[in-house]
């Protein structure tokens, strides 16, 4: 249930970001928030002044209560009560007890954040905190909010409401099934309404990402590394209910990573990407820098950095070109000019 007090503490921009229909509530209640987007809803209401409040018959406490029940009703109407609209991390401390270097970090579906830092620096504990929806009850002391609020504990324990899905380089398929059977099994366990259609969509999307095509009848254990990753990503994007996807170092070979990322983003996922690949890191909007078990800082990808993307992609293409020539059995030496 949405609490009016907590709603009042959030900024208007935050609330509208999570619930776009909130703007129509404001309009219908004659509340002009322009220029006040960054102040909290309750501060804004108090700032209106008694005259205005009396004139329009507005009482801040009542408005907040109405807003909360309006949002709740709309969510129920849209069948989106459980939808994750934002994930917020509140800072804790690193291994030495030093406070983390950020105030409040919020990420929404359709956004990508890269996570960088040496092995053992605290990536798994960050992920663990998110998965466990930590409430200052883990060694880092971090707190995780969903939609700006302390979430229901069912996020911790329910199998159908897992917050985080993981994709990593070390993962393998272990079942003895072909691609179609495998994806169908997953669809069945998720109780999707139109399994055949969804299964075809997953296989099609996976083939779109993979460098080399594969048939729905291929045994999953026979897929190449690139094909396996393509299938895992497509399957997770389309069939996993988890709103957050953690990608751990997806290698460049045999898969179109740019497309993979955009598939996840069009499926409205929050993408966290542990990577040291500069191209992937530059595709992210923001970067979390981890060290000594804590978040050292959060940085925005700058335009200056983004300008590098073209150069890096060119280098990447060159390397990929050599790779496919090698695969095709061609010579790697530059082609000789005719007539020489």
């Amino acid at each position: 249930m949405m609490s009016p007090e907590i709603l009042g503490q959030r900024t208007i921009a935050e609330i509208t970001g999570d619930y776009p229909f909130f703007s129509s509530f404001l309009k219908d209640n004659n509340l002009d928030v322009q220029g006040n987007e960054t102040s909290s809803f309750s501060d804004f209401l108090s700032s209106l002044g008694e005259d205005f409040q009396e004139e329009k018959g507005i009482e801040p406490g009542q408005v907040m209560e109405q807003a909360a029940s309006y949002i709740q009703q709309m969510l129920e109407f849209l069948g989106q009560e459980d939808q994750v609209r934002s994930l917020t991390i509140l800072p804790g401390t690193d291994k030495s007890g030093t406070p983390e270097g950020f105030d409040r970090f919020t990420v929404r579906p359709g956004e990508t954040v890269s996570i960088v830092g040496p092995t053992g620096s605290g990536k798994s504990s960050l992920l663990g905190d998110i998965e466990w929806v930590a409430q200052s009850d883990t060694p880092t002391g971090r707190q995780i909010l969903i939609n700006g609020e302390v979430p229901d504990t069912s996020w911790r324990f329910s199998t159908s409401k897992k917050l985080v899905a993981q994709l990593s380089q070390n993962m393998n398929f272990v079942m003895d099934l072909n691609v179609r059977e495998f994806v169908s099994l997953h669809a069945e366990s998720r109780l999707v309404a139109n399994p055949e259609e969804v299964v075809e969509r997953v296989i099609e999307a996976a083939n779109d990402l993979a460098g080399e095509q594969f048939s729905p009848e291929a045994p999953i254990t026979s897929l190449s590394g690139g094909q396996s990753r393509a299938l895992m990503i497509a399957d997770t994007a389309i069939l996993s209910r988890s709103p957050i996807i953690l990608i751990d170092e997806i290698e460049n070979a045999g898969i179109d990573r740019k497309k993979a990322l955009s598939l996840l983003l069009t499926e409205e996922k929050i993408v966290l990407m542990a990577t040291h690949d500069p191209i992937l890191a530059l595709m992210a909007d923001r970067r979390i820098v981890i060290g000594n078990g804590g978040i050292v800082r959060v940085t925005q990808t700058t335009d200056e950095e983004r300008a590098l993307l073209g150069t890096l992609e060119e280098l990447d293409q060159t390397l990929l070109g050599y790779r496919s020539r090698l695969r095709a059995g061609e010579s790697l030496a530059p082609p000789k000019n005719k007539g020489e």
């Binding site: 159908s160 993962m171 272990v174 994806v183 366990s189």
Partner: peptide, 26 residues
Amino acid sequence: KGDIVSQAEREVFASRVNMVNPKAII
């Protein structure tokens, strides 16, 4: 051993566990 199988297999496996023991915390 969830780190070595795919996300899909993890989800299928957990749902099978949930089916035989719906009350357990997984």
